[in-house]
Design a protein around this nucleic acid. Structure first.
Length: 116
DNA sequence: GACATGACCGATG
DNA sequence: CCATCGGCCATGT
């Protein structure tokens, strides 16, 4: 029988949420998961990012851990690239952490920074 | 089916 | 700040 699209649908929603993070802002895996309708499933967001085809052009660099640290090993190539892209958008990094004001902490800040 | 491993997270000591 | 733990769940051995 046909595969249940439940999983695919969630992947689509997660990709959509990631794509909606505005330039100059970052969002955590957990918040993305919650906004995609899957609270508690932050790891799924990591998986989606890892497997997302580059053609989608997702702003993967705008996703960081809840505490502001990047998910890649410090000083690794990917880590450096993410830092570079973030700084390029004006996001400040301090001690390898995204400064507070550039993190979307709560789940209900839509009206503030998202869809204008 | 058990067990380990992730681009994770929050609570607790 | 650090360490541990349970929660989450797709994937691979």
């Amino acid at each position: 029988m046909d595969e249940a699209p439940a999983g695919l649908l969630l992947i689509r929603r997660i990709q959509t949420e990631i794509a909606s993070v505005p330039r100059g802002q970052t969002c955590s895996y957990g918040v993305i998961a919650t906004r995609a309708g899957a609270p508690g499933r932050a790891r799924m967001v990591g998986k989606v990012l890892r497997e997302a085809p580059a053609e989608l052009g997702l702003p993967w660099h705008r996703i960081a851990r809840a505490d502001g640290r990047l998910a890649f090993p410090p000083e690794s190539e990917a880590w450096r690239e993410q830092c570079r892209r973030l700084r390029n958008e004006g996001v400040e990094l301090r001690q390898g952490r995204v400064a507070e004001r550039y993190r979307a902490r709560t789940e209900d800040i839509d009206a503030l920074l998202w869809w204008p």
